[in-house]
Design a protein around this nucleic acid. Structure first.
Length: 980
DNA sequence: ACTAGTCGACTAGCA
């Protein structure tokens, strides 16, 4: 019986799942049979699901939450296709391609719920800075092989003054001097340990084993183990000599490579610490097969050996399986609707929970996701829930669970699958294999190593491009995740990239490079929603506005906000603005909570924002300027930098516009020490919405926060910067594109509602910029009839009447005439009509000559179509013609736009979602300043309501029939011939 | 039924 569920064994194994037998086996679970005390899996390691094998789980393994449709990895041995995993032998690794970090697993020993929450929300406190810095000093001393006090103290100073931790210290409110004292406490014991380690005895009291560290093989080695589904970074990989009296009478020392885990805290030798080491030995099994790992407590310099037996590994892998199960099954179906699942139970151990960084999320989840359980829970739990969430109302809790569910739905597809065989993924194009290091590795800057690889086999095509994030592994899959970095250059023979580690010691290894899609920073966004629920002044206020939709308030008189001395300056600045723009400025100044500025197409949003910042500057207000994308932020800054408004741009240098680079943190710091001088000198800060993770924000508050393109940002992300300002201004246009949401259910349940749209119901907070300087009258009228109900106006007669200038029009027309006479079978009258500048809107029912290519833009809704069009336009005459999607054209314009609608389907064909969106169509038709050519099949397009409305608005003379030139690439071929 | 952009990762520590 097939219920069409993805877990149904008769449904197909999804394409992205890779199955295999052998040592790196991957089995697809087809059936799970449960009996008291044991569980039997029916499974197959072949995509055809034939032949099948079985696996018997017992002695506790039967509790593994494995289901039909899961992928599992098996360790141990099978007897003719039947596996046994029990107390003594075998391991089962559930969903092995989901790599779980060693620290997550060891933290789940005490509280599984916390470990799962840690996967959803950012946790952690800033109190860990000291630990991180001591680690850094140790690791750098080890790299330099110099543990003298002098060296250590120099390294400590470098860490204290280097850019990496300054921000953190600033955030913690710790001075460099305080931090220095803290750090220096550790230096003598580091030195002591290094001098002494030749005779550092193991602390195993029952044996006289002596362990000597002879050399450090690696520092911060990154290990991904798809065999055990583990990942981690090993502090130190050390060569040790182990002298054990049990090796008979001769004490032949044993040479081993082992992981060393450094601890700066108490010498607890706790189960958590030991578990971490056991997991590290397990994940490095394939690298150097260690049996033992070590804990090194830096405070005392003591070294504790941790020997892992089968039982320890077994129990830790069981924990891992439970954890991975919860992480993967966070959503369940109930009557065709998804909902969040229950988490592992609350611990309610007062001592443990008191310091838990997930305290609030733990309580929120319980109350918001499964409120019924709260009534029956014990008093301790009730008290805890009351304490953490007592200040919240039902709508608040609903808002939290709503966005938690939507984000989870959206992220389900993004689960990362590691592919083990290069061949299979090279087909998908996200991998290049058989690479050899061809040149010496060069150091570009600290921690950035430039590598060049030679490709031994020349692949026909690859999906990797320069700038992509990558992971480097060995070809066999033994050393997975050796380094990560960015691709610089890809050619048929050579690949160069910058990596976070120097791989020169692996000179004999054959490498592979995989594209790293990464798991997108889901946690940052949900942390914003969680933070909105916090009981504190900033969150309480924002929650009231965003969740309760309290009406925004305004003061009545400008004089109280406008300083007397600023009046003239402000009046001067205002001179350059039109009426609605002036109104917008006034509204913002009068606002006590927020203002929404609707910027219709071409109405000068950037100028308006730039002017707004200048006015706020003149009035002495501080401003945080953000948008979702780097380019949107820089767009405004490029305008703003002409005026004397000193701002700081936060963000990675690579992503920032070259002209804005002098304003970045890094450049500014070169001249002065920004963070040590308090108060923070910059009153104007610009960054992306995600940039608010920067430690500056732990202290800094602004008078205003401006968010550009706010109608394209999803609520959890848009909330981020708003925590840091007393008032905010959202700029956008909900009639243009909304946030993109892939998941159909998430979209239908409102995930594409931006904060801009949500708050728009408060009309008193809205100002509309409706005077536009982009489109001529005819083009504008399309959008007016489609979306704006006639509200959009031309800013000047010049704008309204501007036409395309085609200097060679006459020549081309006469050439066309003679061409038609010579080849009368080609009727080119359509082209003649299309070319006429006096015909600014043409729909070519399934030309353009002599104007500058950079004035021409080609737009299509689909990427695939763009690829084909670009291929046809591969001629020098077309270089400079920008071919792009509707989505990417938002916010910009061209003199002439050729818009291809692509679709031409038979009667019953599937329509697709993209063209059903009014807002996408609106953006597409409002990019052209002087002429808009649309190409498409009118018959097909009438099936899309928005396009139908557009077609109905077009006059007869706008419609030109292209009888013989039905498909678009062919149309462009003709276009090319004419232009050349 | 296919549109984009963001992001260092993992770990530090405590009870």
């Amino acid at each position: 019986m097939c219920n069409k569920s993805p877990f149904c064994p008769c449904s197909k194994v999804p394409d992205h799942v890779i199955l295999s037998g052998g040592p790196n086996n991957r089995y697809w679970v087809m059936d799970v049979e449960e009996r008291p005390g044991h569980k039997t899996l029916t499974m197959s390691c072949s995509k055809s699901l034939h032949p099948t094998e079985t696996c018997l789980l017992k002695d506790g393994w039967e509790m593994t939450p494995v289901r039909r449709g899961d992928v599992v990895h098996l360790e141990g041995c099978s007897d003719g296709g039947s596996w046994l995993v029990d107390r003594e032998q075998g391991f089962l690794v559930l969903l092995p391609d989901s790599l779980i970090s060693g620290t997550s697993i060891s933290s789940s020993i005490r509280c599984m719920r916390r470990a799962v929450l840690g996967d959803i929300f950012d946790g952690g406190s800033m109190q860990m800075l000291n630990g991180t810095m001591v680690h850094e000093v140790f690791q750098r001393a080890a790299t330099a092989k110099d543990f003298s006090l002098e060296k250590l103290s120099k390294l400590a100073d470098e860490a204290l003054h280097g850019p990496r931790y300054l921000g953190d210290m600033y955030g913690l409110g710790v001075s460099q001097e305080e931090m220095k004292q803290e750090l220096h406490n550790y230096l003598p014991s580091l030195q002591h340990w290094a001098n002494d380690n030749s005779r550092a005895p193991s602390s195993c009291q029952d044996s006289a084993t002596v362990v000597t560290v002879t050399d450090l093989a690696d520092i911060e080695e990154n290990v991904w183990s798809p065999r055990f589904g583990l990942k981690g970074k090993i502090d130190v990989t050390a060569r040790v000599r182990i002298q054990s009296p049990r090796n008979g009478g001769h004490r032949i020392p044993e040479e081993k490579i082992v992981p060393l885990e450094l601890k700066t805290g108490k010498e607890s030798n706790s189960i958590e610490h030991r578990s971490q080491v056991i997991l590290y030995t397990l994940m490095s099994l394939e690298r150097y097969n260690p049996e033992t790992g070590f804990l090194l407590y830096l405070k005392t310099g003591n070294l504790h050996p941790v020997v892992a037996n089968h039982m320890d590994r077994r129990e830790l892998l069981k924990l891992r399986n439970t954890l991975v199960h919860h992480v993967h099954n966070c959503v369940e179906q109930e009557a065709e609707r998804s909902r969040l699942t229950r988490l592992p139970d609350i611990l309610t151990n007062r001592q443990t929970c008191q310091y838990c960084p997930q305290k609030r999320n733990c309580a929120l989840y319980e109350r918001a996701v499964d409120p019924s359980s709260a009534d029956v829970s014990e008093d301790v739990v009730q008290d805890f829930l009351q304490q953490e969430t007592g200040h919240l109302t039902l709508p608040h809790l609903n808002y939290f669970s709503h966005w938690l569910l939507l984000w989870t739905l959206q992220s389900i597809k993004l689960l990362k699958y590691l592919t083990l065989t290069c061949v299979s993924s090279e087909k998908n194009g996200s991998c290049v294999g058989n690479l050899q290091l061809s040149d010496p590795v060069t150091v570009q800057s600290e921690g950035v190593f430039l590598h060049r690889f030679q490709r031994s086999s020349v692949a026909s095509q690859q999906g990797l491009a320069s700038g992509d994030r990558i992971v480097v592994s060995d070809q066999e899959g033994r050393l997975v995740g050796l380094a990560t970095g960015y691709l610089c250059e890809v050619s048929r023979k050579v690949i160069s990239c910058t990596l976070d580690r120097d791989l020169s010691k692996y000179s004999d290894v054959l490498f592979r490079v995989d594209g790293d899609e990464g798991v997108v920073g889901l946690s940052t966004h949900l942390t914003n929603v969680s933070r909105l629920m916090e009981s504190c002044q900033d969150s309480d206020r924002l929650r009231e506005l965003v969740v309760d939709l309290r009406s925004p308030e305004f003061i009545s008189n400008l004089s109280s906000v406008l300083p007397r001395e600023a009046k003239d300056t402000v009046a001067n600045i205002l001179k350059g603005l039109n009426k609605p723009q002036k109104q917008a400025m006034k509204k913002v100044l009068l606002s006590k909570d927020y203002t929404l500025i609707v910027g219709m197409p071409g109405t000068g949003k950037t100028t308006t924002i730039c002017t707004l910042v200048r006015i706020l500057h003149a009035c002495g207000f501080s401003v945080l300027l953000t948008s979702y994308t780097h380019s949107a932020v820089d767009n405004i800054l490029l305008k703003l930098k002409r005026f004397r408004v000193g701002f700081l741009r936060l963000g990675q240098g690579q992503k920032v516009h070259p002209d804005i680079l002098p304003y970045t943190e890094e450049s500014v710091r070169k001249n002065s020490c920004v963070f040590s001088s308090k108060p923070f000198p910059f009153r104007y800060l610009a960054t992306t919405c995600m940039g608010i993770k920067h430690p500056i924000f732990t202290h800094r508050r602004f008078d205003f926060c401006i968010v550009d393109e706010a109608s394209q940002i999803s609520q959890p992300i848009c909330l981020g910067p708003l925590f840091y300002a007393k008032r905010f201004v959202l700029v956008g246009d909900h009639q243009q594109l909304p946030p993109i949401v892939q998941n159909q259910e998430a979209r239908s349940r409102g995930m594409d509602e931006s904060l801009f749209k949500r708050l728009e119901l408060h009309k008193e907070a809205v100002v509309q910029l409706n005077v536009q300087y982009r489109m001529n009258r005819q083009i504008m009228s399309l959008s007016n009839s489609l979306m704006y109900d006639g509200q959009l106006e031309c800013g000047s007669e010049r704008t309204a009447t501007a036409l395309l200038t085609l200097p060679f029009l006459l020549t081309v027309q006469s050439e066309l005439n003679s061409y038609s006479q010579m080849q009368p079978q080609h009727n080119l009258s359509w082209l003649q009509a299309t070319l006429l500048p006096s015909n600014p809107v043409c729909f070519l029912d399934c030309s353009v000559a002599g104007c500058k290519p950079s004035d021409v833009g080609v737009i299509a809704p689909y990427r695939q179509q763009l690829k084909r069009i670009s291929a046809v336009l591969q001629s020098s005459a077309f270089t400079g013609v920008e071919v792009n999607t509707v989505d990417r054209y938002q916010g910009r314009d061209k003199s002439l736009i050729v818009l291809s609608f692509v679709r031409s389907t038979a009667e019953e064909g599937n329509l697709g979602e993209l063209l059903k969106d009014w807002r996408r169509l609106n953006v597409a038709i409002t990019r052209a300043k002087h002429k808009l050519l649309m190409v498409g099949s009118a018959t097909t397009l009438r099936r899309y309501t928005p396009v139908e409305k557009l077609l109905n608005h077009l006059q007869q003379e706008n419609m030109i029939s292209l009888r013989n030139y039905l498909d678009t690439p062919k149309f462009f071929l003709i276009l090319r011939q004419i232009i050349l």
